[in-house]
Design a protein around this nucleic acid. Structure first.
Lengths: 232, 232
DNA sequence: CCTCTTGTTTGCGCTTACGCAAATCTCCCC
DNA sequence: GGGGAGATTTGCGTAAGCGCAAACAAGAGG
């Protein structure tokens, strides 16, 4: 069965694409499912493919030689990832793991050139994406350099909520499972510290959280904490 | 007086360029001198130009709303910088300041397309550069997440020495002025801590340093410190 | 040569957040 | 419904590194 071009026609990377071109591009792709915790690609592996996340959430993780892990970013629906080919790299610099069950489109690297020429604005869009990621990463360096732990965690949670929030009866919930350990690996701290702070926030009625679950009930105050302007 | 094409013919970004094309490209550029501490462009300013450093060293600095500064990177001779245009940005995300007297080529953004089409491999080279910067920044995040201050400072100094080292009678010296404060802003710590550690290293005969000057006399041991494998 | 600015060193107290450990809780799977 | 694995909470001790402050050194410029 062939893929329906409506899968990609709404996405920013394919904004100005015609229906026939979309069909051709989809014909060169392969669609696959990855169950929760499955690895889409592994760090240091040779990069033969690039990917588009159709549904789900993907965690991009870098592991240091000594075994410590850092979460580089989460990929949301509609985003390209594993695009080592766009940066002239031959290996993936990180691993990609499905945070929930995911559906992924996969292309061979050799299709990259075809997409660039066939999709108007594709190159510009991709390089803008990379530029944004570079800036986000720089901002993270700044945050780690100048803010203390509570502010960093508050900032990370706020970003997660803004990018992947789902409204519920008790506030805005991050719509994929995320552990204290995950948040610690995003903010450069330990799960103990994250747990302590989240407990304190829960006392203050700012968040509600449970096992691999975080909802923000008072985003305003959390934002103040992130900016170090809490009135207490 | 027109610029000599030998200025750029040896550089990686212009690797496969013919003499005539080089002349044409230089004709669209303007060459300027920036004395030490002069600002090439300012953070948040509209990005109308991009630049190539012909000689000197440039410090790229981001400033937070509260005034804290972080050094994003140093630009070395032959590197492009201020290439917001390549990432689809309209403003510079950081300021660029001459660390020593510098000579800089400046192009208008509209020359970007011309360079891309005229210079074989230019696009690929630039995007590889950006990819490398993204990875370097990610590595910095990892380092800040997992290493403690002494290891981070050792790593930063080692990188500076490798990229911009000049052999002297007392070891390898960073060949531009760099203060304790600068190193602190590269590693997310304070000048006090940097000073203390460098004094200790000097005791141990690993570095020699003075006012805005750092030489490494024992790179091997410094590397061990960076990797947290010092024998003591 | 003197002065002034700017960078560096160092002491001391103290807070933040880590590290270890143990208890508790939840959900998943049989 | 009953394990059991994995996630979370919490207490306690401690160390790394910051913040403040003061003294000191080294160039720059007149």
């Amino acid at each position: 069965m062939s893929l329906n071009n409506s899968l990609i026609l709404g996405l920013p990377a394919f904004a100005e694409l015609s229906g026939e071109d979309a069909d051709a591009i989809l014909a060169s792709a392969r669609s696959s499912r990855f169950p929760k915790n499955a690895e889409v690609f592994a760090q240091d592996e040779e990069a033969h493919h690039f990917f588009l996340l159709l549904s789900g959430h993907i965690r991009v993780v870098r592991t240091m030689p000594e075994g410590e892990q850092v979460i580089a970013r989460y990929i949301n629906e509609g985003e390209l990832f594993g695009i080592a080919v766009a940066m002239g790299r031959t290996n993936y610099p990180a691993s990609a793991v499905a945070a929930v069950d995911c559906v992924v489109l996969t292309w061979q690297n050799k299709a990259w050139h075809d997409l660039q020429s066939r999709v108007p604005g594709f190159g510009a869009n991709v390089y803008q994406t990379i530029g944004t990621r570079l800036q986000d990463t720089q901002s993270r360096v700044m945050e780690m350099s100048t803010r203390q732990v509570e502010q960093r965690i508050a900032g990370a949670v706020m970003r997660l909520v803004q990018q992947s929030g789902r409204k519920t009866e008790e506030g805005v919930e991050i719509d994929f499972p995320i552990s204290r350990q995950d948040i610690a690996e995003m903010t450069g701290t330990t799960l103990h510290t994250v747990s302590r702070l989240m407990s304190a926030w829960e006392e203050d009625g700012i968040v509600r959280s449970g096992r691999q679950k975080v909802s923000v009930t008072d985003p305003h105050t959390l934002m103040l904490i992130a900016e170090n302007r809490r009135t207490k």
